[in-house]
């Protein structure tokens, strides 16, 4: 017997999935509950370098310092950079494709020193530019997730 001419088989995972219940942590929970309950952004400030992080986390990487000081951050800022996604791909959480096109942006919120990653609305593509001012649009029903922010819109 040889392997010549054999049908080359594959095995499919079908509907298999792995469930996870990810820990948001203390700082992340504070950030998401502020958005959920008060439609407010907060950042966390490094006592050493003064950098304000959004989303917040416990440790400032470049200083290796623990952070505890909360500071308000506006729900407005500017587009630090962005792209418009035009090809569809599978979302690993659902196994289904997200509809395209959509704007994907890094937003420097007023009062923050890092970018907040989210969708930017692209109804008027001409206005979507690096440096454009944007504002968060919140969902009516909020669940303590990053998607409580629906997207950002260009405001000038």
């Amino acid at each position: 017997m040889t392997n010549q001419g054999v049908d080359l088989l594959t095995i499919n995972s079908g509907e298999a999935e792995q469930p996870f219940c990810y820990t948001v942590g203390l700082e992340g929970s504070k950030f998401l509950t502020e958005i959920r309950d008060n439609k407010r952004f907060v950042g966390i400030k490094c006592p050493k370098c003064g950098k304000v992080y959004v989303p917040p986390r416990k440790v400032c990487g470049p200083c290796f310092t623990e952070m505890t000081e909360w500071v308000p951050v506006k729900d407005e800022g500017y587009l630090h950079s962005y792209t418009i996604l035009r090809f569809a791909f599978l979302d690993p959480e659902t196994g289904k494709e997200k509809p395209v096109p959509y704007g994907y942006a890094f937003i420097r919120l007023d009062g923050a020193d890092t970018d907040f990653q989210h969708y930017v609305e692209i109804k008027d593509e001409k206005k979507v530019k690096i440096g454009a001012r944007v504002r968060a649009v919140f969902e009516e029903k909020r669940a303590g997730k990053i998607t409580d922010v629906k997207h950002f819109v260009v405001i000038d």
Partner: peptide
């Protein structure tokens, strides 16, 4: 908070 998710 915890975030219920999956890898599919």
């Amino acid at each position: 908070l915890q975030y219920e998710s999956r890898i599919k």
